[in-house]
């Protein structure tokens, strides 16, 4: 069963990467980044799963899942949110200068 979670995580990561490679809209690029991040986080959480175990809270009933992979996504979510916030701030700046968010029309630094 855990294979499904891992498979989903990998699929989400690859979908994010595909979005990033193919889309020409800056917003979609940032969405692709977020999707990639979601894939990695899901992968981390899945790696801590133990069948029929409870959450890592005391007092504990039965076993507990691995608490360590729960802390990484908490840290990584915050980091990813900062990256996305910064990217959106840059998009606002770029849009104010060019009036577009299409990569093909933003050619300031090409060539």
């Amino acid at each position: 069963m855990i294979h499904v979670s891992y498979g989903c995580a990998i699929a989400i990561f690859c979908i994010g990467l595909y979005t990033l490679i193919t889309k020409r809209n800056l917003f979609k690029t940032v969405i692709g980044l977020s999707i990639m991040e979601g894939g990695v986080l899901l992968f981390m959480v899945a790696s801590g799963f133990i069948p029929e175990a409870g959450p890592p809270l005391l007092p504990m009933v039965g076993g507990s899942v691995n608490p360590l992979p729960h802390t990484f996504p908490l840290t990584a979510i915050v980091i990813g949110a900062s990256d996305v916030a910064l990217a959106l701030a840059y998009i606002i700046k770029i849009h104010r200068h060019y009036g577009t968010v299409d990569v093909d029309k933003i050619r300031g630094l090409r060539g």
Binding site: D83, A87, Y90, I91, K93, I94, H97, I106, G108, L109
Partner: peptide, 11 residues
Amino acid sequence: WQAVEASFKYL
């Protein structure tokens, strides 16, 4: 704006 665009790419 060049710097902004360059740092977006970097990001």
